[in-house]
Amino acid sequence: MLRSFIIVAALALTGPLTGTASVAQGTSVAFGTLQQDPNAPVELAADQLAVDQASGTAVFTGNVLIGQGEMRLSAARVKVIYAENQNGIERLEATGGVTLVSGQDAAEAARADYNIESGVIVMTGDVLLTQGTNALTAERMTVNLESGTAQMSGRVKSILQPGGD
C-alpha cells in the first residue's frame, strides 16, 4: 500500500502522468519510433484520381492510403499540390477521417496538411494521439518528421496509464 502511494505521489508531482485526465495549454511529445525521411518517395493509392494540369493539383478520393518510409496516412480525400516546376510534390492536404501512423503511434484528426519540403505535418480538428495505452487530445498537432517530435496545442488533455510492477 505504501509503495502504491509513493508511486502515485511521485507521478502526481511529475505533471500529467497521474493516471487520470489532465489539461494543459500545450505539450511536446515524441512521435513515431524512427525519424522519418521527408525525401523518401511518397506512394499514393485511392479509388479515384482527378488531375488538374492548369492548377498543378491532383485529388485522390475514396480509401486514400499514402506511404512514405515507415509512415502511413489514410483519409477520405487527399489533394496533392505539385511544385511550380511540376518536378515533385510540394504539399498534401488530407481531409475526412485522417489517420497518421508511425511505428506504435497513431493520430486521428479531421484534417492534415503535410509540407513535403519541411517535413512538417499539421493535424487539426479533434486530434487524438495514441501511444500504447496513453492518449492525448488537442485541437492541433504539429509533427516534425525529421526530429520525430510533435507539438500539441489548443486545450490539450491527456490520459496516461502509469506503468509499474
Rank of each mutant, 00 (worst) to 15 (best):
L73G: 01
T61C: 05
T137P: 03
P41S: 05
S74I: 07
A75P: 00
Q35H: 07
S74N: 15
N63L: 13
Q68M: 04
T142C: 01
S22N: 14
A138W: 00
A110P: 06
Q25D: 15
V156I: 07
M1K: 08
T14S: 15
V143S: 00
G97T: 09
S28A: 14
E108C: 08
G103A: 13
Q151Y: 08
Y114G: 00
G62P: 03
L145Y: 03
T133S: 12
T124I: 05
R3T: 07
T130E: 09
S74L: 12
E139K: 02
T130H: 08
V8I: 11
M1G: 14
F60P: 02
S158I: 01
G32F: 00
G148M: 05
L17D: 01
G67T: 10
A76K: 12
E146F: 02
Q86V: 00
A21Q: 09
M71K: 09
L136H: 05
P38I: 03
L44W: 04
R72Q: 15
A46E: 01
Y114V: 07
Q35L: 07
S4G: 09
M71D: 04
G88F: 00
K79E: 15
Q68A: 05
A112P: 02
G97S: 10
P41Y: 03
Q53Y: 10
A12K: 14
D37P: 06
G15V: 06
T124G: 07
T149W: 03
E108K: 13
G67W: 01
E84Q: 11
A94M: 11
D47L: 08
P16Y: 08
A83E: 15
L73N: 03
V51R: 09
N144Y: 06
A58L: 00
I7M: 11
T130K: 11
P41M: 04
T95I: 12
N39I: 02
E84K: 05
L136K: 01
V51G: 09
A50Q: 11
V98F: 07
G26V: 13
R91V: 04
G67H: 08
L100E: 05
D37I: 10
I121E: 03
I66G: 01
N63K: 15
I6Y: 06
Q48L: 15
L11C: 12
V156E: 02
A76P: 06
G125L: 04
S4T: 10
V59Y: 02
R3C: 08
V78L: 13
S158E: 00
N144L: 02
I116Q: 08
S22D: 13
E146M: 03
V101L: 08
I7V: 11
E43T: 14
L17G: 12
Q151P: 01
N39Y: 09
L2G: 06
A24C: 09
G62T: 11
Q68F: 05
V29C: 06
M123F: 00
N85T: 01
S28Y: 14
T133Y: 06
E84G: 10
E70S: 11
A21P: 10
G125R: 05
T18R: 14
G103D: 12
A109R: 01
N144R: 10
A21N: 09
E43C: 06
M1L: 04
